[in-house]
């Protein structure tokens, strides 16, 4: 472990107490010449929802994608610093990125079900990782995941119909079901409601609140209200820097930093 992060871990009470599921120590990301994330230090607690907020282009998605190493796929992207999951360096050469992504699931901004049946969408991850030992096993995983995503009752009669035929909100919940079918420990969500109408959004928010019991959730959101509603911790990013992080309540009622205050009162964003 690098010294910066050690220092950081010592400094952060949660991390020191071993409560942090994920820690970031002095994380920098460059896209070619562009310095997109600058020295991020952040601890994310288990079984909590952490919201990442900040104006467009401030690096929220970039940070999120560091946690499951999706940035590896972007040519010219360079990540430095230390990110740990359960105190294990996820950029360690020994670590298998496929294993990591099984532990850290992701839900994307635009609902992106595979153009396959609802069943196959959810079953894909378990099949990939050999989680089911029989067809019955697999079916149970699929049904449980759909139930936990609050979608089962709506689709139970048409599991063999294409997932792309569902409404936007249903598609997003299908993507959440698909992610939790792999039994990840962490779920990353990048503006999961930005393509949804208010009713579908409410359903997804409710779902996030329920999922917190079993998963650690990191959510990027553009909506202040959403962050306030679903999250316990909020981190405010600005121009690639982490300006302020704290309990959601404190961030929204008593922000320590002028920039945070400006953003949450809607003076810019």
């Amino acid at each position: 472990m690098s010294t910066t992060s050690d220092a950081y871990l010592r400094q952060d009470a949660d991390a020191a107490a071993g409560m942090a599921k994920i820690t970031a120590g002095d994380v920098n990301v460059h896209y070619g010449d562009k310095h997109a994330l600058k020295g991020i230090n952040l601890a994310i607690r288990a079984n909590e929802v952490t919201a990442l907020i900040g104006p467009s282009g401030c690096g929220k998605s970039t940070f999120l994608r560091c946690i499951n190493r999706m940035n590896d796929l972007i040519e010219g992207a360079r990540v430095t610093g230390l990110i740990t999951l359960d105190r294990q360096d996820i950029y360690d050469r020994e670590l298998d990125v496929v294993q990591l992504r099984a532990r850290v699931g992701m839900v994307f901004q635009k609902p992106n079900p595979f153009p396959k049946s609802i069943y196959d969408n959810v079953a894909y991850g378990p099949r990939l990782h050999g989680l089911a030992h029989s067809t019955a096993d697999l079916e149970e995983i699929v049904v449980t995941s759909l139930e936990r995503a609050g979608l089962y009752d709506e689709v139970k009669d048409r599991l063999d119909e294409p997932g792309t035929g569902l409404s936007g909100g249903q598609q997003q919940r299908l993507c959440i079901a698909r992610a939790i079918a792999v039994s990840p420990e962490v779920i990353l969500m990048d503006e999961p409601c930005s393509a949804l109408d208010p009713i579908a959004t409410a359903k997804v928010e409710e779902l996030i609140d329920e999922l917190r019991e079993n998963f650690t959730i990191v959510i990027v959101t553009h909506s202040m209200q959403q962050a306030a509603r679903v999250s316990q911790r909020t981190a405010f990013f600005h121009l690639g820097e982490l300006v302020e992080v704290g309990d959601t309540e404190q961030i929204f009622t008593n922000p320590q930093h002028k920039l945070t205050q400006g953003y949450i009162t809607g003076r810019f964003g």
Binding site: V98, Q99, R101, F108, K110, P115
Partner: peptide, 25 residues
Amino acid sequence: PWIREAALGLGASRLQMVTHHVLPL
């Protein structure tokens, strides 16, 4: 591209992503 992201995000290897999703499509 989001088909690829979805597959990789679930822990598919690049080859699995290609053979399971991209190539059939």
